[in-house]
Nucleic acid binder design. Structure first.
Lengths: 222, 222
DNA sequence: CCGAGTGTCTACCACTTGGTAAGTGAAGCG
DNA sequence: CGCTTCACTTACCAAGTGGTAGACACTCGG
């Protein structure tokens, strides 16, 4: 019932906003991308159908295919937007942070905030890494600058003797897995008897930081 | 061509083995479960179709549905088998291990061996935790004894002062995420420039153990 | 006011999905 | 022998899947 047919705006009434005709298209595309990100990131790519996506938007599937030539192309666009969001978020978080360990803390805080407020972003990363190439390659490329900076940071900290010496790339993967896991693996947490709640999440973040700190920071030569 | 029609055994020739008629059914079901585990664990549940699964087995889809009333039921059966395998593998690994940290090492070694030899097992765990209930509940229930033992182990080590004191459940999740991530997240590893190879895997395991050891073991009061 | 272009819709399409109904052949049992 | 049961098949089906073709409405530059 009326999933299509312009239920959003009264028939014939086209809103006249600055930008005019072309702006409506971009606005629709924005909504498409937002809904697709939500669905891909939480339900998964295969489990999301264009029909159902269109239904949620009050639009027909063909409108989606007008803006993105195929489902795969839509995923690419979603990835681009999501990775841009991620980079921006982390840049923002790091802008205010001081040097050294503070930066790690800022990043972890940022991830936990994302896990609460925009779980679909982290979900998409997981989903795409599961899907493999070519989608995963795209994510990797988009995040490459961030990854490189992170690796350089770790290397510098190790050189300065503030972090335990080892392969920065491997440490990065370990830390990544740990953080993303603790922040997002709801089912695993439930399995060990941790129900999701705001209070519990704060505790979890604190414990995770302690875990990471022990794992990374060089033993002080007292 | 000839995906169906008993291409496996010459028409009319029914193998007369001890066990006879009823044993053939169990054998087919074994092959079904093995193929389903493989596909669910590597390609994913939704990305696996019964038709294609049947094709690989040289059997019709209806044969699968004869043994398992639905795709979901098949997943349940696969989960039961996989979790039993996992439990057996880890029990075996722990049987020979000594006390304390040696047990963690034995477990990590075990996970890495699985990642190389039976990646579909670990893949299924990831996949199911992604799918959520009711499948994830089943995994959780099946692995509950193991989880409980692990938590008790951690608690005991902390009590004995050999491990850094903190919430055993949270430490378990952290360690779980780290180990499974480093062992199985091929795409993430590729993203930081680590191509999968046997040599690299050994190095990865050693570094991971160092990472875990720093994270978990209590600082010796020297 | 006209023609081009943009954004969206209706109407299809070929194909695949999980699942049902009904049957077939062989083995086991009285 | 006939009857049942087991293992499996052929033949379908309704409901989706991603994707194409073509029309319609509406806006804007000329």
């Amino acid at each position: 019932m009326a999933t299509s047919g312009g239920a959003g705006t009264p028939a014939g009434t086209t809103i006249e906003r600055p930008g005019g005709r072309a702006a409506r298209g971009r606005e629709t595309d924005d909504r498409i991308l937002a809904a697709a990100l939500q669905s891909f990131g939480t339900k998964g790519y295969e489990a999301t159908s264009l029909d159902q996506l269109a239904g949620e938007l009050g639009v027909t599937k063909q409108t989606i295919l007008y803006h993105h030539s195929s489902k795969a192309a839509l995923l690419d666009a979603v990835i681009d937007r999501a990775t841009a969001d991620l980079t921006a978020t982390f840049d923002e978080a790091l802008r205010g942070a001081g040097p050294g360990w503070e930066r790690v803390e800022a990043l972890v805080r940022s991830v936990f905030r994302l896990a609460l407020r925009r779980p679909e972003l982290l979900g998409l990363v997981r989903e795409v890494s599961r899907l493999g190439a070519p989608a995963s390659t795209r994510v990797a490329e988009n995040l490459e600058p961030m990854v490189r900076r992170a690796r350089a940071f770790l290397a510098a900290e190790m050189d300065a003797g503030r972090m335990r010496r080892s392969d920065p790339a491997l440490v990065l993967v370990s830390a990544y897995s740990t953080v993303l896991g603790v922040a997002t693996e709801v089912e695993v947490l439930r399995a060990v008897g941790i129900e999701p709640s705001l209070r519990a999440t704060v505790v979890r973040r604190r414990e995770l930081l302690a875990f990471l700190r022990s794992a990374l920071v060089a033993p002080t030569p007292s």
